[in-house]
Measured scan of single mutants.
Amino acid sequence: MSGNGNAAATAEENSPKMRVIRVGTRKSQLARIQTDSVVATLKASYPGLQFEIIAMSTTGDKILDTALSKIGEKSLFTKELEHALEKNEVDLVVHSLKDLPTVLPPGFTIGAICKRENPHDAVVFHPKFVGKTLETLPEKSVVGTSSLRRAAQLQRKFPHLEFRSIRGNLNTRLRKLDEQQEFSAIILATAGLQRMGWHNRVGQILHPEECMYAVGQGALGVEVRAKDQDILDLVGVLHDPETLLRCIAERAFLRHLEGGCSVPVAVHTAMKDGQLYLTGGVWSLDGSDSIQETMQATIHVPAQHEDGPEDDPQLVGITARNIPRGPQLAAQNLGISLANLLLSKGAKNILDVARQLNDAH
């Protein structure tokens, strides 16, 4: 009898209710805020589980004197976190989706994509230029951005401005803007500013005609071990179906173009009346040469937790077992079709030249 009692006690200790789920994140304040929001949602869904947040620095956090596009290494903000995932030191990792490459290392998958916040870019102005827009900034004003995508589009749109690289986390960039006289304004992701509670610093939100956004911008991705079915089931509740389908289309477009950090590629997606609209573009580094096109596809946005595919093969690095396969494939095909259209119009040449120029500098 006593033996059975011990077995029952052991089973209770090993039951999922007692389990601590370890969540990996970057150390920056924004990353911690984003991770806290994901953990809060998981806690609400699984009140019996405990969650421990483990923060670590990544290569991208450490190399702050070089433009991201020049470092010449993929997975700048993800490699150390993936290493911890691989060694079973954490069970899942919360990322900004735009930091996750469209091809993940073997053994990993994006197990959830959370509801997207505003994906557009924002302009934050130096205190002396508050009330201005990019259009009304004085001639030769210097605007800071760490992104080739932003610089290429904005140089084309605002030729009277000069664009220079600015690195560091959000706090560091804002301090550089406010305390030094080098920059009249800087460009940042609206979602990051909003998550930090800095709505009052948003001086201008850039519309798609001015600057399309990065693939996955404004959404959070939760990376897990691809074979860890328990954790895949656990994080599945975080999937937002519309965000998922938009981001599958965007990531398929980028992957098929073979774009990345070192080339200016941008997108804009919208879901309306059962249609998914995808606009994508590529630019030369100075913005003088560009190709942009829009395509659409009829896609039914499923309700969360309709029964999805059981075999769960990944699409552009994403596993969404609780979302039907048909809409996911339709979104992926839309991204591939748009990429093929741009490639047929000469996108590869623009991107190759951009890559060579970026590598040469």
Rank of each mutant, 00 (worst) to 15 (best):
V38T: 12
V38F: 05
T41P: 06
K43C: 08
Y46W: 13
G48D: 13
L49V: 12
Q50T: 10
S57L: 10
T58W: 00
T59L: 07
D61Y: 02
K62E: 08
K62G: 15
I63N: 13
D65K: 14
I71P: 09
K74H: 11
L76Q: 10
F77R: 01
E82A: 15
H83L: 14
A84H: 08
L92C: 12
L92T: 08
V94N: 04
V94L: 07
H95M: 05
L97E: 04
L97G: 01
V103N: 09
V103I: 08
V103Y: 00
P105E: 06
P106S: 13
P106Q: 11
T109M: 09
I110W: 02
A112I: 00
I113M: 02
I113R: 00
I113V: 00
C114F: 08
P119G: 05
H120V: 08
H120N: 12
D121S: 04
F125C: 01
T133M: 13
E135D: 12
E139T: 08
V142N: 11
V142F: 07
L148D: 06
R149D: 04
R150F: 00
A151C: 10
A152G: 09
Q155D: 06
K157Q: 10
F158E: 04
F158P: 02
S165E: 06
G168Q: 02
N171V: 06
N171G: 11
N171W: 14
R175D: 06
L177V: 12
E179T: 10
Q180R: 13
L188W: 02
A189L: 01
T190K: 10
T190L: 13
A191R: 01
R195Q: 04
R195F: 04
H199Y: 14
N200G: 09
R201W: 09
Q204V: 13
Q204K: 06
I205M: 09
L206I: 03
H207P: 12
E209A: 02
E209W: 01
E210N: 12
C211W: 04
Q217T: 02
A219H: 00
L220P: 00
L220W: 05
V222A: 10
V222D: 02
V224L: 15
R225A: 03
D228Q: 15
Q229T: 07
D233E: 12
D233A: 07
L234D: 05
V237W: 02
L244E: 01
L244C: 13
G259E: 11
V265P: 05
V267A: 06
A270Y: 06
M271S: 11
M271C: 07
K272E: 08
D286L: 08
D286S: 07
D289P: 15
D289C: 04
D289F: 13
T294H: 15
T294L: 08
T298G: 03
T298A: 08
H300L: 12
Q304V: 03
H305A: 01
E306Y: 05
P309F: 14
D311W: 09
P313V: 13
G317K: 00
I318F: 15
T319H: 15
A320G: 14
P324A: 07
R325S: 09
Q328S: 15
A330R: 15
Q332N: 04
I336T: 03
S337I: 08
S337V: 15
L338Q: 04
L341G: 08
K345C: 05
A347R: 15
N349G: 11
V353N: 15
A354L: 04
R355M: 15
Q356H: 13
D359W: 13
